[in-house]
Simulated scan of single mutants.
Amino acid sequence: MTTRLRRRLDQAAVERRGILMGFLPAGYPSPEGFRAAAHAAFEAGLDALEVSMPGPAPELDGPLIQAAALQAAPQMSGIADALRLAASSRLHPDDSIVALAYLSTFEGISITDFLDEIVAADVDGVLLPQHPMAEQLAVGLEAQARGIEPVLFLHLQEDLKLIAASAIVEPVIYLQSADLRTGGAFNPEKARERLEELGAALEGKPYDVCVGFGVRGLDEVRLLMAAGADGAIIGTRLVAAAGEGPEAVARVVDDVAPALVRRHSGDPHPVEQEARQA
């Protein structure tokens, strides 16, 4: 079974562009405001939306996202409610939704039951940014068996070998651009370095990589496309825009869309290409 996210990545490769992923806490700034913001983002060209489950955001997410999560949580009755809201925020049937769950999410539900809820809500993917890579990979195999796309959160260099050796087919990787909180300053050299390390470690194994943390607009996205990323992830800026209204959300997506064209689109990742030519 091919997920919406996989189809969008494949479609983008054919169209010679990268994908744009966004992030919002479920129910922020209100359930109606969330749906309006998501619709505006998808209408403007967003490819996929990560939606965090109700509960506090960790320090990793920075003060703006933490505040948004606190505002949104009381407006959701639980995980099932959040997932249904997320799925209903699609504007088109092929818009992709990824459920993001922190460690605190599993204080009241097992991972297996969470995957059941994802399937029931017709959500496409799962992202567990606080789980160790070994656990992400184990859950990823279970998710793939259920038709859910696992998105692997990569921030430790030692996890590269685990991904390379895993049985997950054509993994989708969320690459942390640098060791910082969301909303921090973007480090272009570190982002390039991590993309190169990933390409070298996977040694030609098919994968897709989207880069987040510090990615705000046109300049960062253009650099990532030139460096061989398959997509960019905008979180803090999109959350801030959602607090202003749908028009502000659309402007964020419109701002970065011109940078999604890849000069070397359709070619292997730069590191893979060099390896094949050696």
Rank of each mutant, 00 (worst) to 15 (best):
F153V: 04
R216Q: 07
I97S: 01
I163N: 01
L141K: 14
F114P: 05
R194I: 07
R194W: 04
L175F: 04
A120T: 12
R216Y: 03
E135Y: 01
L162Y: 00
A191M: 01
A165P: 01
V139I: 14
L115T: 03
E117K: 14
A201G: 06
E158N: 11
G212D: 10
G217Y: 02
D116L: 00
V123N: 00
I118R: 03
L175C: 06
I111M: 13
A143R: 11
L152F: 12
A121N: 08
V126R: 03
I148S: 00
V119S: 08
Y174L: 10
T105C: 11
A138D: 13
Q176V: 14
P132Q: 03
Q136V: 04
E193S: 10
Q144R: 15
V215Q: 00
T182Y: 06
H155G: 00
L202M: 11
R181L: 06
V151H: 01
G214Q: 04
G199S: 09
P129V: 04
V123W: 00
E203N: 11
K205A: 06
L175D: 05
D116H: 11
E196G: 09
A178C: 09
A121I: 08
L175G: 08
F213L: 13
S177Q: 03
I118G: 04
A167E: 15
V215D: 02
L160D: 04
Y102Q: 13
L195F: 08
D113M: 05
D159T: 05
A164R: 12
Y207F: 15
T105H: 02
V119T: 15
A200C: 02
V123M: 05
P129L: 06
A200D: 12
R216E: 05
V119N: 10
T112H: 14
L137I: 15
D122P: 04
V209Y: 00
E193R: 13
A143L: 09
E142R: 15
L128H: 09
I148N: 02
R181E: 13
A120W: 02
A165Y: 01
L141Q: 15
A145Q: 13
E189R: 12
L115Q: 08
D122Q: 13
D113H: 14
F153D: 00
I97P: 01
E203G: 03
A164G: 07
P132N: 03
E149N: 09
H131D: 08
V211T: 12
E170N: 14
E197N: 11
R192V: 09
E149Q: 15
L100Y: 11
S166W: 10
G183T: 11
L137H: 07
G140Q: 08
R181C: 07
L195W: 07
H155F: 07
K205D: 03
F106Y: 03
D122F: 01
R181T: 14
L127A: 02
Q144S: 14
E196R: 15
G108Y: 03
I163S: 03
I118T: 07
V215F: 04
A143D: 10
